[in-house]
Design a protein around this nucleic acid. Structure first.
Lengths: 336, 336
DNA sequence: GAACATGCTTGTATCGCTACAAAGAATCGT
DNA sequence: ACGATTCTTTGTAGCGATACAAGCATGTTC
């Protein structure tokens, strides 16, 4: 491996001058600069970032840790964050935590020791206790959670509001027997997306006197298969269902497929509403009515917060929570 | 930041002993190990990877560079590669190159200087000339290209074979006026996925005497919008089309949506075949007939090759190309 | 009991880069 | 012409970890 010393020798200058050229320091004579650049090109030299990082104490890289990269929502999110990070002069790389709680904490602790300046953690299951582990000097932004209360910067969604919008929309469209897929009632200390959306959904139904039995909330993992399976089981247990709110668009698409398999028409027989408004939602057949979070604003907020923290713009006790707005986007899957 | 020295002092041993404990070296007395572990826990110490990397010269991290993370195919691919890499003791992170050729090269050159042991590059547009830049000592595997001929390890798809399968399938299903979306005829020296699939498609039609005019091949970017737009334009110019091959599943889904918007039924009026077999393809309505590459085998091959190279198991002149098999998976979108 | 093997621990010397400070060269004003 | 000012270049000293080899206790052998 060629080092800066090699380049320096080759160009007849000191290593420091090479460093100055590479880092665009002022006060380098043009002739010298050219000589150094030529030497760099000739030797095919590249900076060793490990050494640079060790010396500078920063890497210019932010890590986005998501439970599963293979989900439209996270792909979309990652894409937005990458752009915003680039605007602020940071690179962003994506790691997967595999949705298992231990791996999530693993990602957190590893990131401390990895070459990242900051961590944006899209957590699925984090207990309040875990705040302990997250606390500390490492710049971290927690993404997408609402209930978690630790001392951390957070960008969250109006999960309950969104779910309530969905419930109201189904009732407004004349649904009389509504259900939810991908719902869950978790313990108080482990508030996850499913639980929050379920809560918003049920509360809204209750307010309108439309809450039937708890059995109409079915759990599901956030996959096409999960949505398909949950819908199939729901149809078996509650054949008269005429409105379904799904905790994510992916679940909704699996559910719509299951409805088609069962010969039910969407929206005529059953109306379906998703959550997330992933790009796909506008292009399915029928297109998907969904709760649309302000993804762009959330990405802005997340990058803004993490960069501010990395650059020391905010104090150690000054934590903020940004709530992303949601709106309901009506499309074909609930047009009845 | 607490350092290894701090831990050593705290535990009453030398820094080397701390290092030995952390790296599970033999010949550390159990009592000492416990003392060190206690000190580590107490101080909340984490290894500084920049320092470790500088010293050891390796990071244990492989980079996957993709043009756009926000595309089902890449999400799926990333997910498979992450698992395989973990099996081999490597972490894998994902970077986005944004599909612009300069950014791709940028990712390549940056990765040399970044803290990665190897690069898996899913390139969209690379010229043969770029082989120059890729050549060298940095472990690299090029993914998904077929035509590119530089001295590199590659995992490629049987793009032409797959496209030919799709063409044959459409004809077998009785389509008489077939077209392609997301096709492209590129210059010889810049062979990309679109071009290869187009070539396979047209060659197959020609063999069966069914090649109509070149106008029935329309370009499109690999997005839902792109597929939608291309299909809309195709319907305007060739209203009698009854079979469409799309260069990716995403384009196909956009196309199906456009067909629905135009009041055409799939597959009754127009049959549609995609390429990639992303998880989504089985769950759309209608479900999508598609060319299914052996994703798992390709992921295996890519990780196997990169790890072998990182570990020096293969010589500097020993480059391999693995071709992933493809099969056609018939589903509803062409069932007529 | 001398010689030697084994288990455990520790200095020392880098890995490649850059912050810092200071030295040398060139330019300027008066 | 001389000090003051500015521009340009360069030693030096680490950042924090680990490879290497050497050191010091023990235990083992004959």
């Amino acid at each position: 491996m060629t080092t800066m010393q090699d380049v320096a020798r080759h160009a007849g200058v000191s290593a420091m001058t090479v460093s100055n050229v590479i880092n665009d320091h002022p006060h380098v004579r043009e002739a010298t600069r050219q000589r150094v650049l030529a030497a760099i090109a000739e030797l095919g030299y590249h900076v060793n970032t490990a050494a640079r990082t060790l010396r500078q104490g920063r890497t210019g890289v932010i890590c986005l840790a998501v439970p599963e990269i293979d989900r439209p929502y996270f792909g979309h999110l990652a894409s937005l964050l990458i752009d915003r990070a680039a605007d602020r002069g940071f690179e962003l790389v994506v790691e997967q935590t595999a949705a298992r709680r231990d791996r999530e904490l693993d990602a957190i602790s590893r990131s401390r020791l990895r070459n990242y300046d900051g961590l944006i953690l899209s957590a699925v299951q984090l207990h309040d206790d875990d705040a302990m582990l997250l606390r500390g000097d490492f710049p971290t932004v927690l993404l997408g959670e609402r209930g978690f209360t630790g001392p951390l910067d957070r960008v969250v969604m109006a999960n309950e509001v969104g779910a309530a919008l969905a419930a109201g929309h189904l009732l407004d469209r004349g649904c009389r027997r509504v259900a939810m897929l991908g719902g869950y009632h978790s313990a108080i200390d482990a508030i996850d997306v499913s639980t929050l959306r379920t809560r918003g959904f049920e509360d809204a139904l209750r307010v309108r006197g439309a809450l039937q039995d708890a059995a109409s909330v079915r759990s599901s993992d956030f996959s096409f298969e999960g949505g398909h399976r949950a819908m199939t089981e729901l149809l078996r247990d509650a054949p008269d269902v005429d409105g379904v709110f799904c905790s994510t668009d992916v679940v909704a698409i699996g559910a719509i497929r299951a409805l088609a398999d069962a010969g039910r028409r969407v929206p005529h027989d059953v109306a379906v509403v998703g959550f997330d408004d992933v790009p796909l939602a506008a292009f399915t057949t029928p297109s998907l009515t969904t709760i649309s979070p302000d993804h762009a604003a959330m990405a802005d907020a997340a990058i803004g917060m993490i960069v501010d923290r990395i650059e020391g713009a905010r104090g150690a006790e000054d934590f903020r929570t940004v709530v992303g707005e949601v709106v309901l986007v009506p499309r074909e899957s609930s047009a009845r």
